[in-house]
Design a protein around this nucleic acid. Structure first.
Lengths: 210, 210
DNA sequence: TTATTATCTTGACGTTGTCAATATTATAGT
DNA sequence: ACTATAATATTGACAACGTCAAGATAATAA
């Protein structure tokens, strides 16, 4: 934004992007400040003029993860404006797809490499944005009679817990899914989502997307 | 077991225990091979005669986490032999309490610091034990008409996803709960659990423990 | 008792996060 | 335009870390 056109131009965002790239190429273990600096073409100490320490860079990468999820949620709400059920199922699969495509970024985003969240207001704000969109979808589903009419906040916690837990367990070595082999992962996610519908369990209330 | 009575006696388990202690005192970031060795009273290289590398020690600590959860699940099943509903609710709260009491150990156990699970058969075996107990509880609940009569494996995935996701989101800075403040965490867990019951949402099917 | 193996120590190397000191470039004030 | 100041970047250093190599010590086997 305003951190531009000095020596490098926009080093801060370049560093964040370099970090995301390293995460996708080498995983969480490969992320180091010095490697990020090298990829951005600056000295090993240049990042310290944009991030207080490694934690701060990780917080920024985490914020970027929240932003990606948030923006996709906004798009989904616009695309399926009149179809709350579709919004919910698309949101759940978007979440899973992000974790499948960028597992290291997903882990860093949530895996509390950031200890003291309150020190990173941008991160908190973006997480708030994400939660806000989520509640809107849950609220719309409740108004449409798809989800139980409990407080939207509580229902959002439950639904997000299920989708987040499902996704986390899946990408962590597929600990469970590989061993159980009870169904393809997409169908299992639908099954999990269906637990939250008002009607009888035996019908599929959420269709598979695509 | 058989790795005993040499110079130190039982260094392998001592190292694992030292790692668990460091996790509880300094968190995930404070865990290093050299500190573990120092706490066990051996040189910085002694651990390499019991663990191939740091990953292997982390895998052992992760296995220990699975063992703790598994053994508590076994105890719960024995204690409430005739009450599947109680088994499920106690299991869920045991899970949350472990994460609250030992957040760093909980994170290490699941947070796939271990990349190639198949290289650690003990870890896979203990995770299988845990999943097995979980399925038994779910199966008992289904037979008692508490959970929907879907395949027990699929239902176990869903329920565990919800509990695990709920717990993960809670300890990761309480990202969501703190911001929503919709209800105390215990009540929210019960609410989440109730989503999986057969009957109407408006009744509480799982009581708060204690 | 000797040979062998398992266990542990010491020392070294490259990488990392971070601090201090210095240099360079952009902006502000005159 | 010119200087002062702040923002940005480099270089160098240090301790801590993971890991390898070489040697020492203690338990077991022959």
């Amino acid at each position: 934004m305003d951190t531009k056109k000095y020596h490098h131009g926009d080093l801060k965002n370049t560093l964040i992007q370099a970090g995301v790239e390293i995460l996708s190429e080498e995983g969480v273990g490969g992320l180091s400040l010095r490697k990020v600096a090298q990829r951005a073409g600056v000295s090993h100490n240049a990042p310290y003029f944009h991030f207080a320490d490694k934690q701060a860079l990780i917080a920024a990468i985490s914020t970027e993860g929240y932003r990606i999820l948030y923006e996709q949620l906004v798009m989904i709400r616009e695309t399926y404006k009149a179809d709350p059920r579709r919004q919910l199922v698309e949101a759940a699969f978007m979440y899973l797809r992000f974790a499948q495509t960028s597992p290291a970024h997903f882990k860093v985003t949530f895996s509390n490499a950031v200890e003291r969240e309150e020190a990173y207001p941008d991160l908190v704000a973006m997480a708030d944005n994400l939660i806000g969109e989520l509640i809107q979808i849950v609220d719309a589903c409740q108004k449409a009679g798809i989800l139980h009419p409990a407080p939207a906040g509580a229902m959002a916690v439950s639904v997000w817990s299920a989708v987040h837990g499902f996704t986390s367990l899946y990408i962590d070595g597929q600990s469970m899914h590989d061993r159980l082999k009870v169904a393809p992962v997409d169908q299992l996610l639908i099954f999990t989502l269906n637990q939250f519908t008002v009607a009888d369990w035996s019908e599929d209330h959420f269709p598979l997307p695509e």
